[in-house]
Amino acid sequence: MKPPAFEYLAPATLEEAVAALGGEDAKILAGGQSLVPMLNFRLLAPSLLVDITRIPGLDYIEDWDGGLRIGALTRHHTLETSPLVRERFPVLHAAMAHVAHLAIRNRGTIGGSLCHGDPAAELPGLALLLDAQLRTTQRTIPATDFFEGTLATALAEDEILTEILLPALPPGTGWGFEEFARRSGDFALTAVAATIGAEVRIVAIGANEKPIRLAKAEGLFSDQSSIDAVAAAAQDEVSPDSDLHASADYRRHLVGVLARRALKSAWEGAS
């Protein structure tokens, strides 16, 4: 298979990378696990690929006031196997097992997944659920403002995501992550993530043109007895599309079922 011809640049610093992005029809190459298939299919034909993986200092998971700061080039497999992630954000740890397959997780990066902005991908939904702050070469963007639509984010052409900040969850927060896919590692038909702590948060993945917080459903939650009503509201709050893989009705139904399961597990885990 031959991707379209492109120039290749491997900058050594973020400054060089930003300078290369200005003006040209350029794409950032990080893990490449979404970009390279698109090039192989010739869905894209950028004139320049800026390979940022040789820029040092963007691959780390560190304490951030009880939460975590994560370098944008941190690989999925590193997140999946990180004791810090497992301890502080078990919901993220659980979600990582659903991200594609081992060989993809070895290469794909958290920054790449967020910037790609696939509505059925786990990490954008988790960023929303965990109230992530996304630090770029220009500013800090809350996850709520970052995702704008299918494969569309708030990033400017010459802006690079550098760090993901996850604020600490209040002690005793319960969580649930439920995903349905036809085969292990496939993109989710839909997934629902929830936390119950100081507040209730519910995020639907793959059910809209971007991951969304289900605010109406969240508002109906009181205790265990409200879970069925909240799940029914969650189902009404999403607007999925039909495609080859599932009808809109089926996806909507799944959101209800998965919300019920995620909330039940979050309620049982909360203290």
Binding site: Y8, Q33, V36, D51, A103, I104, N106, R107
Partner: peptide, 12 residues
């Protein structure tokens, strides 16, 4: 690390 050779460029 196990990776897909079809998702990498030789120059990388």
């Amino acid at each position: 690390k196990a990776v897909r050779a079809c998702l990498l460029y030789a120059v990388q």
